[in-house]
Design a protein around this nucleic acid. Sequence first.
DNA 1: CCTTAGCACTCTGCCAGCGAGAGTGCTAAC
DNA 2: GTTAGCACTCTCGCTGGCAGAGTGCTAAGG
Lengths: 344, 344
Amino acid sequence: MYLDERKKRILQAVVQDYIATAEPVGSRTLARKYNLGVSPATIRNEMADLEEMGLLEQPHTSAGRIPSDLGYRYYVDYLMEKTHLTAEEQDFIVQSLATKLQAVEELIARTSEVLSAMTNLTGLALGPQWAGSVILYIELLPLVPEKAILLVVTNMGTIQHRFLEIPDEITARDLAVISEVLTRHLRGLTLERLSRAALRDIRDELAAYRRVVGLVLEAVEDAIGGGRAERIYLGGTLNILNQPEFRRDLAKVKDILNVLETEHLLRQLLLEEAGGTLAIRIGGENRAFNMPYCSIVTASYRVGDRVMGAIGLLGPTRMEYARAVATIEFMSSFLSEMLAHFYR
Amino acid sequence: MYLDERKKRILQAVVQDYIATAEPVGSRTLARKYNLGVSPATIRNEMADLEEMGLLEQPHTSAGRIPSDLGYRYYVDYLMEKTHLTAEEQDFIVQSLATKLQAVEELIARTSEVLSAMTNLTGLALGPQWAGSVILYIELLPLVPEKAILLVVTNMGTIQHRFLEIPDEITARDLAVISEVLTRHLRGLTLERLSRAALRDIRDELAAYRRVVGLVLEAVEDAIGGGRAERIYLGGTLNILNQPEFRRDLAKVKDILNVLETEHLLRQLLLEEAGGTLAIRIGGENRAFNMPYCSIVTASYRVGDRVMGAIGLLGPTRMEYARAVATIEFMSSFLSEMLAHFYR
DNA sequence: CCTTAGCACTCTGCCAGCGAGAGTGCTAAC
DNA sequence: GTTAGCACTCTCGCTGGCAGAGTGCTAAGG
């Protein structure tokens, strides 16, 4: 789609003004606030063109124009001036995330809050990804009589646990033996596929414990498979209610909260385009979700070249894209850095 | 406060009708729907009395009456007919919670969702309580070069972990020795107070590892102290938006979501009266919270006589108390039962 | 003395009508 | 190609009127 310079400037001005005010913007306002060097009448003509091209739309005949999804898209792709967080802001993030950090989950949890605090949007954070990591230890420890706890520790430091009923005659020593055998055979395998061969070997070697080995292996498989659901952290859900476009429209708020409450939807939202570094999906571009009035900016974070999770910002289509992008970019690279340091 | 039979019946009818319809209820309606055997005029006189006593109030001169906090309180304490969940409902709960259960956290998480599904209110669940449990194992495992992971396992099957930087020269065998010493000295201690003596003994016995023992003990203390923040699970946040009294009033919704988003407020809300079995706090009785239009029904769940956590239902003051109470009571005793079975 | 019918009064919610304000599209002049 | 002028349109907020619901009071009845 080709736009001459003047159209670009006008589109840019409309988008920026609408983002700032949430009010449809008219030719007069435009001429006054942004010195475009032409009169309102000319701007009107241009805006009519932009509307015909599908970049702007009118809520009703006699209101100003607002950007369409396509208009935002053009803005984001070609017109938006990239910004960076200020040194103070970066510092704030670093302080918020780096102080007294105890476990990776905590880092991710705080990330969602910081994201929201930086932008007044809703911050999302997913991870850390459990898939793709490698088993380091499997331990079976007696808990109370006839109960044991199974721990699976991976090289990423994630831990899954399961409870097991065990027959009375199995001693702590037996459990230690079983742990050792399990660890020896499974160590180094990725979680996605425990080789069938390894499982059979274990069964053979532990033939003496026939009564429990089935249960134990089941628990192992379960711990590994069931752990797939990484937690999603939300920050600033409340901010949605501060957006003027939603103050009056409970139905929309409900749609959004519904998505925010449904983990698998969120997961889909965050991971859909985790391939690239940064994804911006605007309004109706999010086909799967009934939220044509929302945009989302997402990015994955990595350790080395493995995707460890994703973060995102959800807000009205009218969000400050430049700031959202700057924040997401900084946060995802900072997260990657922190994790790299954490794990190596 | 003494009420004669007729006043009781009228108050009861007002509360029930208002709970059902969310509309102020007038004398005419009352006379028609509930056969009180008297005319609207008499009812009006009685209602005027009830209003003077502070049990009812009028939104404006010419609307019907609605119960005041005090009115609800009287209803809950003296007039409410206790109900029980039907066999089908109980079955639904049992099915939802008992199938394929993997870990205690999952049980609690599902509880909040079931609570909300049963009542169309917002379900809260806190726990399982980490305080009061006893250390069973402490393990220090090498993770990647110069990093180790510390695991603290308690008799309740909760696990805390922390990452540690360790000098290169410390071997896996060294870590095993340290683990053994830690476990030997700390096993059986409750998390609240690791005795100073035990810590000194450890320091003495591990003098050879002077370089790491400080770090390790710090991590242990941190894992134990930091773990205090049990997770809170929410279910059905969305239901708030379905309440007619909040459909129009974004400010209230915001207040509520704000509380729901702030963990320490929720914790306070759930634990405030964990002493008794069941607590109902109505509207303004919740002094600490700026939500005079909300009530909350809470109960703790236990294993033996130790409080393991709490569950609750949050909704408008107009909630169906009888149902909320029945649900909470069933759920908390069912939870206690499940956990008792789990742990013993 | 309690209960009840009747009635005047009050307040809300809803709708229609109106004017102000903002913005547009079109036309004609520059 | 640009711009001033103008008629037109649409929203928003305000007002007044009206129906509906409910009340309190009074007076009559058991």
